[in-house]
Simulated assay, not measured.
Amino acid sequence: MQNSIGVLVVDDSAVVRKVVGALLQSAPGIHLLHAVADPLLAIERMKHHWPDVIVLDVEMPRMDGITFLRKIMAERPTPVVICSTQTERGAETTVAAMAAGAVAVITKPRLGLKEFLTESGDELIAAVRAAAQANVKRLAARAAVAAVPLQAPVKLTADAILPAAGDARPPLQTTERIVAIGTSTGGTQALEEVLTALPAVTPGIVIVQHMPEKFTAAFAERLDKVCQIRVAEARHNDRVSPGLALIAPGGRHMLLRREGAQYFVDVIDGPLVNRHRPSVDVLFRSVARNAGANALGVIMTGMGDDGAAGLLEMRKAGARTVAQDEESCVVYGMPKEAVKRGGVEKTVALKAIDREILAQLVR
């Protein structure tokens, strides 16, 4: 089928294969190539017809999903959507899958699976469409993934969480510098590349990476082990301090607030903003209001436009703003939209973002 996305489903659950297969077949512009029970069967099918996107389980007989994923990325990089159960162990496994090269992740429960997949059909279809647009060249260069955006009937803006500053006076500058980073599809590996390049002495960093609940804690722990700076999942009222990167927890918004010359984060509930929770726009707006010229805003690889409006607000408030360039993005969606709206002061390659962050120290 010309111009149609061919999908291979690999899952040992007959229910998943049946329901996911039916959802894919019913979606315009997508067709199901095969639905098989394990990676060895998938390899046989792929000898005859290579898929555009693979929907892959993690725990399977004969060969686990991560081993299969690594094999694919080594031999012929292909966009992969991971389906994983949402448990602490599953979270760690899925983070490993992200590092191995998956493009997106759908969480699934152990119980009520058929009902969940039926109700989450739009989410799955959106994940497959997003994966099909991934930059395969970047997948070959470095494995990358992000969470699938949760869908909402109405696309809310950051106004749903925090009103716009309007003509409020920008905050006074202090010696305390802040870096705010927003990213989505492809962001987990991109963040690792940036954060591992930073020395222990660096400005305080606040990060929104689109990712479901349970996964952000495991992701932060993994980064903390390989970085010179400290990395942690943010908790309400954590102080943003030099040498520390705080990652917004999946399923909750994170905002920056200022008390005197110091900065803290508020971790709150609230509606989806730009179909995401956490939302980059929410974080960036709070940084514009409370840090102004003390801040650097960085928007990185990702699908959609979350963060574009907030980055423009940061720039108007006196902050420096940087976007990752198209060549180094897995998906050049969020940076492209930020550039289009005028919120980007400077576009740089992924390998140069750490230098932009360290430049905050001498401002």
Rank of each mutant, 00 (worst) to 15 (best):
V9G: 03
P51H: 06
M73D: 04
A14Q: 13
V16W: 02
V103I: 04
I30Q: 01
T93W: 04
E88L: 11
R62W: 06
I72A: 03
I72K: 02
V103L: 04
T93Q: 15
I82F: 07
N3K: 09
E75A: 15
T78M: 07
V36Q: 05
I43P: 00
T85H: 03
T87G: 04
E44N: 13
D12T: 12
Q2A: 13
V81P: 00
V55M: 04
D11G: 04
K47I: 04
I43M: 12
D38W: 06
P77Y: 09
G6R: 05
L33W: 07
K114L: 05
T85V: 13
P51F: 06
H48F: 07
I66H: 04
V10C: 04
L8W: 11
A100N: 03
C83S: 09
P79D: 01
A42R: 05
R76S: 12
L56H: 09
L23D: 08
K47Q: 14
A102W: 11
I72W: 02
G6W: 00
V53E: 00
V81Q: 00
P39L: 09
R45N: 09
A97G: 12
L32N: 02
T78Y: 10
M98E: 00
K18F: 13
L41N: 12
L33D: 03
V7Y: 10
G101L: 10
M1N: 02
P61E: 12
S84M: 03
R89Q: 14
A102K: 09
D12G: 08
G6K: 06
P39H: 09
V20F: 12
A104K: 03
A99P: 01
M46E: 04
A99N: 06
I54G: 02
E115G: 00
T93Y: 06
L32R: 00
A37K: 12
A102R: 06
V58F: 02
K114D: 15
Q86F: 13
R45Y: 10
V15C: 03
R110H: 14
A104D: 15
P51N: 08
K114I: 08
H48Q: 14
A102H: 08
V19M: 03
E44Q: 15
R89N: 10
